[in-house]
Amino acid sequence: MIENANQIWLYLSDAKDGRSTEDRLRRAVHQCCETKHHIKIVGSEEQIKIARTDRGKPYLADYPQIHVSVSHSGAWCVCAVAETPVGVDIQEHVRMEGESIEEASQRFRRMAHRFFHPIEAAFVDEESYYRFFGVWAARESYVKYTGKGIDASFSEFCVIPEKKDRQPELGEMSKANIWQAEGVSFWETRYQNDYTLCVCAKTSNLFIDKMEMI
């Protein structure tokens, strides 16, 4: 068993190195179990079976106590391994070719009102560019945690607290935000200047270990 049920392990890899998502998940699980000595995996890394639910959420067929999630964007792919159900999302801050930050912000505000909860859309309106990516990554991590993916109910949940004084400062550099909403915990940070990374799990004290490259 993993020693700390609140702990999430993150494994980063080059998204363009040719490996499949399943291979990355196998590597992450094997690395976690080998180096952390928390769970014993029987057999080799290649023998770890990655299955998918009908909504596409990955899981380990032979180790139901280990939970995984995976996300890719731009140059990076990130895998999360935990003892509790987990969702992870990484999103590059991308704009259309020739689009300024101001133009992108305007477009993101429209997207927020189209796809986000009204409270989130209002939050994005105040400071659009980085907040949009923060909310987006949090929402994606949440639907990966639930395993529902983006469906008809995508606009119905809210990943930021309703009370303004408890709102996280999404998008700040060199700082991890931790907050609770929808009965789960979120951990969000900027990565390498132009990526936002967010983890969602049902723990009261979510703890992220240092990310490792795999």
Binding site: A15, S71, H72, S73, Q91, V94, M96, R107, R110, M111, R114, F115, W136, E140, I150
Partner: peptide, 21 residues
């Protein structure tokens, strides 16, 4: 290799062009 963000951006471009949801 598109992710959800890319797909939603494409959807928005379609919606803007055709004025539909």
């Amino acid at each position: 290799g598109l992710n959800s963000f890319d797909i939603m951006n494409i959807v928005c471009a379609f919606e803007d062009h055709f004025d539909v949801e």
